[in-house]
Write a protein that binds this DNA or RNA. Structure first.
Length: 174
DNA sequence: GAAGAGTTGTACT
DNA sequence: AGTACAACTCTTC
């Protein structure tokens, strides 16, 4: 770990899945940033900027992650938790929230309050939500399984909502 | 069912 | 260091 992040060479890969193109950017510690399934590889790569700008295309590094993500997008029951992730930019609370989020079983949903409790503070549900908002690992951290206390898909800022609803439907149907 | 107040964490200035 | 913002939850009308 002696090597600094700035001195580290990032690598990326982009591939097509059943739901669209997914781009992933990783470092020495693991995946640093991942995109949601997009219509075109260009959009997917745009999603992982600016990290991808200083990364080189190394599909050989992520053949394992590619297979898992592709299988997941195809509806297969795979464990995305096997993919190593690097939470360098995350604060302890955020990292803990992401870790708790990965702990949620497929097809199940948890509330932000539960997530906050796992992260350390029960009343930090709002902060937990923000941690998900800052989540750069997209599919690797199944933030779509986190819903509001009432069970409704709250927030999920922007165009991610339809996709997450789709993912939930897929997992539930599975 | 809808609206308002309260807490905690993160990001930015 | 301080201020503003946020993908929440709970209590009350």
């Amino acid at each position: 770990m002696a090597k600094s992040r700035s001195d580290e060479q990032l690598t990326y890969d982009v591939f097509d899945t059943d739901m669209g193109w997914v781009a992933i950017v990783g470092g020495d510690q693991g995946i640093v940033r991942a995109s949601l399934p997009e219509a075109t590889p260009e959009t997917a790569l745009d999603f992982v900027q600016p990290e991808v700008s200083m990364a080189i295309h190394s599909p050989d590094e992520y053949v394992d992650a590619r297979m898992l993500i592709a299988a997941y997008c195809a509806g297969e029951a795979v464990d995305l938790t096997n993919i190593p992730i690097d939470t360098r930019d995350a604060t302890p609370f955020t990292r803990n929230a992401w870790e708790a989020c990965r702990s949620i079983p497929a097809g199940e949903t948890r509330s932000y309050g539960w997530l906050a409790e796992q992260a350390g503070n029960v009343k930090a549900a709002r902060g937990a939500g923000q941690a998900m908002a800052r989540n750069k690992l997209a599919l690797l951290v199944p933030c779509h399984r986190v819903v509001s206390s009432t069970g409704a898909l709250h927030g999920f800022g922007g165009a991610g909502l339809p996709l997450k609803s789709r993912l939930l439907g897929m997992e539930a149907n599975r």
